[in-house]
Design a protein around this nucleic acid. Structure first.
Lengths: 240, 240
DNA sequence: CTAGCACCTATAGCGTTGCTATATGAACTG
DNA sequence: CAGTTCATATAGCAACGCTATAGGTGCTAG
């Protein structure tokens, strides 16, 4: 029930914080609990981490490593959309496995201040969507698609966490997941919906844009390329 | 800067709490601030509301009335899916207009304990989806569809709130909204597009070129387009 | 070997938090 | 008028995040 006394105080604080955060069941964790478990006094905490949030950030950073590792560890199946599916599922699973940590990472939102974690997660998702875009499987700019999918992913995970564990129905996740992926993918026939106007021009422009990000061609000078990309963006951002 | 002294203490507490919550910009609001603004002492608060959370719940209940009123106030257009769109937009707008209240209502999540508000919002959404289902426009059970859409709606709203107001891009909302609605609606056909993953800058450029031949975009002027096509040709003619 | 210095940790305590035991006043009820 | 109930106030507790200050430790320089 205590922390290995051999470790340096900083590491003991990190472990104690992580342990209490994991076991607290969502209840707030006090610095006094942490320092007591770490067998350390208050100023030590503030010396190493500045304040409570600094300590939590450090814990989150560790948790994020774990999260990112999970998001990267499966072999890229060669089917980007399938990889995005697994990314989604991994995200949800991470949230359900470590709800308190997840809430600190994605749930502790304040207006006008986005935690860095969210931006990183966005980048991760965007990276994957770039591959899909390069393969012409996406009909929306990768950045927007990534933000959209991630927002839905977070929303679903939060909703699942808020539910009693016995009632949790992962169908909510798969349904929403496939809905989002389906909606941004080109792998659909033009229905009568508003998306039908999203012509193949836009799709091709998005794909080319993504491909160019991966490898700059030497057929254009840098100034030409700059203007070229601008026009490309203008085309791929059109909504009609 | 103070609360109408004519009102009974209970109402004054409610107003003070709402006012401080709205102005706090996400920072925690203390009971002492509230009671001071309401010109009342601490026990009065606890006599009427039990505890701080009880007071906030009461504030939220009032906010929820406003929210529900907004969700109901537009005439049912006869097109359930269109109504759901407006419901979504109204939800987002409510969140952006009163971010602090919204965060108390939808963001203050703890594991295994779902705020009643969420259940109510779910019911509202489900109600609307029932109409869509009755019209044969839904290919998913209304309850699941409602939960799924609401989860995405909340996720998007939270993400928008977390962003600096200047960077907020409502396209994220409309994109996700239409994606979700499109995915649960019957108004779609199974896809046939099978452009496999063998893409590159050249392939994408060729595809874009072909697409542009079919329909010229109006985002570029004719002179821009001419140069654009020339560069495109240069890229797609390369051998790499 | 010692002086000095930077680093790390502890003692003690400040100001604020949510909340309450107790008491007092007012208003209705028998 | 006595009794009860409701509503508010006085005063204060325990816990919170945090810090001013000081003391101990290990290093390097002379």
């Amino acid at each position: 029930m205590s922390i290995d006394g051999q470790l340096p105080p900083k590491a003991r604080l990190l472990r104690a914080a992580a342990e209490l955060l994991a076991k607290s069941g969502g209840a707030p964790v006090s610095t006094r609990q942490i320092t007591k478990l770490a067998e350390v006094t208050a100023p030590t905490l503030y010396h190493h981490f500045g304040d409570k949030e600094g300590l939590f950030d450090a814990v989150v950073a560790a948790g994020f490593e774990e999260y990112v590792a999970g998001e990267r560890d499966f072999a890229p199946s060669g089917q980007p959309l399938e990889d995005i599916r697994r990314m989604w599922d991994n995200h949800v699973q991470f949230g359900l496995n470590q709800p308190e940590l997840y809430l600190v990472m994605f749930g502790n939102i304040r207006p006008e201040s986005r935690p860095a974690i969210v931006a990183d997660a966005e980048g991760l998702m965007e990276e994957m969507l770039n591959k899909a875009a390069a393969a012409g499987q996406i009909n929306v700019p990768p950045r927007e698609a990534a933000r959209s999918i991630l927002a839905a992913n977070v929303g679903v995970t939060l909703m699942l966490i808020a539910e009693p564990a016995t009632e949790r129905n992962l169908e909510l996740s798969t349904l929403t997941r496939d809905a989002m992926i389906f909606a941004v993918s080109t792998d659909q026939a033009p229905g009568a919906g508003a998306d039908s106007g999203r012509s193949s021009v836009v799709v091709a422009a998005i794909a080319l844009n993504a491909a160019l990000q991966a490898s700059n061609p030497d057929q254009l000078s840098s100034s030409e390329l700059k203007l070229f990309l601008e026009w490309l963006h203008r085309i791929s951002s059109s909504n009609t």
